[in-house]
C-alpha cells in the first residue's frame, strides 16, 4: 500500500507502531498550514520557522494522545496556537513589531502584470491591513486568522481554542468591529 494514500489516523498508527519515518508524511501535509498560521501570529519568518518545527516535535511527542474524534488539522492547530501563546507569554510580548513583515509583504506583492503604482498601492493596503490585524489581542486575532485566512469553521475554531461556539462567534464579531475601527483610524 502506498503510504501517501493513508489517512492521517492511519499514518499516526503507523508511527505509533514504530515506523517513525511515516511522520514525514504528516509534516509534508501540514507544514504550510502550521507555518502560515504561526507566521500570521508572530510576523517573523525565522521565528515562525523555529516555532513551527517546535510544534511538529510537540505533536510527535504527544502522538499517542491524539484521538480521531477531532480532525488532525484541528488538533495540530490547537497545539500550534497554544504553543505560540505560551511562547509569547514567556517573551512577555503583547505586541509585535510589524516593520519587517510589512516591507516583506509589500515586496512580495509586486507582480509583473501590474503597474508599479498599483502594485505599490496594493502592497501598502496589504501592509496596512496586516498591521491592524496584528494590532488585535490574541483572543480576537486567532479566531479571525483561523476563520478568514485559513477557512476554518466556527465549530473547528471552537475545538482549536477550546472555547464554546458562542464565544468564538462573539470574538470574531468583536474582532471585525475592532479591525474596522482600527482601519478607519489608520486612514
Amino acid at each position: 500500500m502506498n503510504l501517501c494514500e493513508l489517512n492521517d489516523y492511519e499514518v499516526i498508527r503507523q508511527c505509533l507502531n514504530g515506523d517513525e519515518d511515516c511522520f514525514a508524511i504528516l509534516v509534508g501535509r501540514y507544514k504550510n498550514l502550521v507555518y502560515s498560521v504561526i507566521l500570521r501570529m508572530v510576523n517573523d519568518r525565522d521565528e515562525a520557522d523555529d516555532l513551527a518545527q517546535d510544534v511538529f516535535i510537540k505533536v510527535y511527542k504527544n502522538l499517542d494522545k491524539y484521538y480521531p474524534d477531532f480532525k488532525f488539522s484541528t488538533w495540530i492547530m490547537r497545539i500550534a496556537t497554544n504553543h505560540v501563546i505560551d511562547y509569547r507569554r514567556k517573551k512577555r510580548m503583547e505586541t509585535v513589531s510589524l516593520d519587517d513583515m510589512t516591507h516583506e509583504e509589500a515586496d512580495k506583492s509586486f507582480k509583473a502584470e501590474e503597474s508599479p503604482e498599483s502594485s505599490l498601492m496594493r502592497g501598502e493596503e496589504k501592509a496596512l491591513i496586516t498591521k491592524v490585524i496584528n494590532g488585535l489581542p490574541d483572543m480576537y486575532k486567532i479566531p479571525i486568522v483561523l476563520y478568514h485566512h485559513h477557512g476554518l469553521s466556527y465549530q473547528e475554531i471552537s475545538e482549536v481554542i477550546d472555547e464554546p461556539l458562542s464565544k468564538v462567534k462573539n470574538r470574531i464579531f468583536r474582532g471585525r468591529k475592532m479591525l474596522r475601527d482600527n482601519l478607519a483610524g489608520q486612514i
Binding site: 511522520f23 504550510n32 498550514l33 513551527a52 516535535i57 493596503e125 471585525r176
Partner: peptide
C-alpha cells in the same frame, strides 16, 4: 477592504529544508 485582503491566497510555503530539519530533530 478587509474582505479583499482575507480572500487573497494566504497559505505561505514553509521554508526549504523544513521537513528535514523536523525529522532530524525527531531522530
Amino acid at each position: 477592504r478587509l474582505m479583499t485582503d482575507f480572500n487573497q491566497e494566504c497559505l505561505e510555503e514553509a521554508p526549504d529544508g523544513f521537513d528535514d530539519a523536523v525529522m532530524t530533530k525527531i531522530a
